[in-house]
């Protein structure tokens, strides 16, 4: 059963590698949004340092959002999704595989890029560590919860905008604890509590989200 999941992840990764422009455009969107903020609010390092965790996390949220519509759309268009739904493996497990692949091509690169962008905001090395760690722990939850929205808006007109309406409110706890972890490090409280809660959110999100996602996919395939 796990073999099927791993081969699905490998397949999605291979597809992702063949469309590197898609991955790159999401990453550049992240970079551009983050870089716009200093231009909008001014270059004072003190102010930027204070705003950096929030800005980086919100930009990561939006970048993930941007990559979500494609999570199921291509498979839906060419009929692969129906075949996957007909396969003997539970659909929830297949969704989990697709979520993992999505995280590997969107959440993980964002996480790796974030400390570099953090340097633009003059973050200390402890804050950079906390930022990277919080993104590493938190972004799987974004992929997991986002999959629900991607499945619900599959083949619906205006899907992309609708997706953000549905999913962004559900992302709020992840944003609060993710950005809070960095801020707690900066203020010297320590990020432990935030990171633990973020880990709990991710575990719960990745564990439970495949069920509603699978149900939504079955509705879309009817």
């Amino acid at each position: 059963m796990l073999n099927a999941v791993f081969s699905l992840i490998a397949r999605d990764l291979r597809l992702g590698m063949r469309r590197q422009a898609d991955i790159a455009s999401v990453l550049f969107f992240f970079i551009i949004v983050v870089s716009l903020f200093p231009l909008g609010i001014g270059p004072e390092p003190d102010q930027l340092r204070r705003l950096a965790p929030g800005i980086l996390w919100v930009a990561a949220l939006l970048a993930t959002m941007l990559s979500l519509p494609r999570l199921f759309a291509d498979d839906h268009r060419d009929g692969t999704l129906e075949q996957l739904a007909l396969s003997p493996q539970p659909l929830g497990l297949i969704v989990l595989g697709k979520v993992a692949a999505h995280w590997l091509v969107s959440g993980l690169p964002l996480t790796l890029l974030a400390p570099v962008l953090g340097l633009q905001f003059d973050l200390s090395s402890e804050a950079l560590q906390a930022l990277t760690l919080s993104l590493l722990i938190g972004t799987p939850a974004l992929s997991g919860i986002g999959a629900i929205g991607a499945a619900l808006t599959l083949g619906v007109r205006g899907g992309g905008v609708l997706l953000s309406l549905l999913i962004l409110p559900l992302y709020i706890p992840v944003l609060i604890f993710g950005a809070g972890a960095v801020e707690a490090t900066v203020t010297g409280v320590g990020a432990q509590a935030h990171l633990s809660l973020l880990g709990a959110l991710t575990l719960a999100g990745v564990f439970f989200a495949p069920w509603p996602t699978a149900a939504a996919l079955r509705i879309a395939l009817e």
């Binding site: 629900i148 609060i176 959110l201 509705i219 879309a220």
Partner: peptide, 27 residues
């Protein structure tokens, strides 16, 4: 389809409401 999709969203929302409330409160 609208009914069923809406129902899933409402249920996901209702599970999330307490999580959102407590995270906002803590924040």
């Amino acid at each position: 389809r609208a009914d069923k999709a809406g129902a899933i969203l409402a249920l996901v929302g209702v599970v999330n409401v307490p999580i959102i409330y407590f995270s906002v409160k803590w924040w």
